[in-house]
Design a binder for these strands. Structure first.
Lengths: 215, 215
DNA sequence: GACTGTGAAGCCATTCACAGCT
DNA sequence: AGCTGTGAATGGCTTCACAGTC
């Protein structure tokens, strides 16, 4: 398999395209052009074609793409043609929200375990799933062959959780704690930093303002 | 003010550096080199220096950077030396989690309003803040001079919320709904897509697996 | 005529390597 | 000797423009 290096930006867009295709498919659209996909997802038509070209030739010249066809190609490329078992560590507000989040279920992610250390949380239920103490994490990951872990604990606790995860069969970690984590390189890591996203906005607002005041 | 185009990647890193500096400052560190910042935040030393160089000369050759000094410079650059008033639209699991999220408060963001349409939510309290019906959104934004809105409603409702926000004085929107939003260009928009982040992981896992099986 | 697929060009970000300061 | 600041080199992503196909 000739996997030329694919830009991460391309993967992000493929994910967006696939959701957009699901949407227009529900509206009964059968065929779509790169220009229409571009308009619907806020990128350029050439970009859409380049992104798709990394993976094959899915369209018909002069016509466009079959919505259903392309959708399934993208789902396959993204690895979403199987169900992924996910564990969530931390049952605070964020962990709870992520456990209940319908957007994950829609895309084939299944939360098989939620863990926390707080005695008042252990034993209660989220979406029919019992919150277990941290000690049972390895057991559940093993039992359900979970491959992805979501870290939703406070920053101070994140590295300890990562260390425990490193001893399991977990293949990838999505980290919501605002800390840089050290993990062995065979585990895939992605960070989602909620504050950083707001701060990009404030940076832009702040520098726009200083342009205005000429400062 | 000579604002050469700053890469967005640089802003993201500045935000990470600033949090790391706060951390080492609490540990009593006074001076730090680009190499140490790099090690602590997972980037290259040259990258750290380049990023900082966009904004001035903050270090001393042969010595390094003053932790406190550099921290405050970064806070200023990111626009975090003032308190930003934020409204959150949607009091579901995600909206609730974001309203309670301590990470925002720590960085100077203040949630001044939470809105929802569900009758059973309206009137209840989050963190001492009453959930208001959507109709009161404009009034609150106006009264509290809120400049940032966070959209945490289901995908189908997101565009309608964006349209309403476009009629207010809101300057920036952080959108958590998995939809491409149309908004007037004077409003800054950023999307945080929780599923996309998981899907980048599954893409990597899926293609790693197909390399292994030689497929 | 419409639209895809793609080499080439252009643009932007990161890394290198070293001069300059302490 | 140690570390910053920065022009030059590299590498990577996006846009352009057009040949190829229906």
């Amino acid at each position: 398999m000739k996997t030329l290096k694919i830009p991460e930006a391309t993967i992000i867009r493929l994910s967006v395209y696939s959701r957009y295709l699901a949407q227009v498919d529900r509206q009964g659209v059968v065929t779509i052009s790169s220009g229409q996909i571009a308009a619907g997802t806020g990128v350029s038509p050439a970009q859409v074609r380049k992104d798709l070209a990394y993976f094959g030739e899915f369209g018909t010249r002069g016509v466009g793409y079959s919505v259903k066809d392309l959708y399934w190609h993208l789902i396959k490329i993204l690895g979403l043609n199987t169900i992924w078992s996910v564990v969530i560590i931390g049952a605070g507000n964020l962990g709870t929200a992520l456990t209940m989040y319908g957007g994950f279920r829609e895309r084939g992610f299944k939360v098989v375990g939620v863990f926390d250390n707080a005695p008042d949380k252990i034993g209660s239920y989220l979406n029919g799933l019992e919150i277990y103490p941290m000690e049972r994490m390895k057991e559940v990951i093993d039992r359900d062959k979970a491959q992805i872990a979501i870290i939703a604990v406070p920053a101070e606790a994140a590295q300890a959780v990562a260390d425990e995860l490193a001893e399991t069969e977990i293949k990838a970690i999505l980290n919501f704690a605002p800390r840089v984590l050290n993990i062995p390189s065979h585990i895939e890591l992605r960070n989602v930093d909620l504050s950083v996203n707001l701060e990009i906005l404030t940076f832009n607002l702040a520098s726009r303002r200083s342009l205005k005041t000429g400062k």
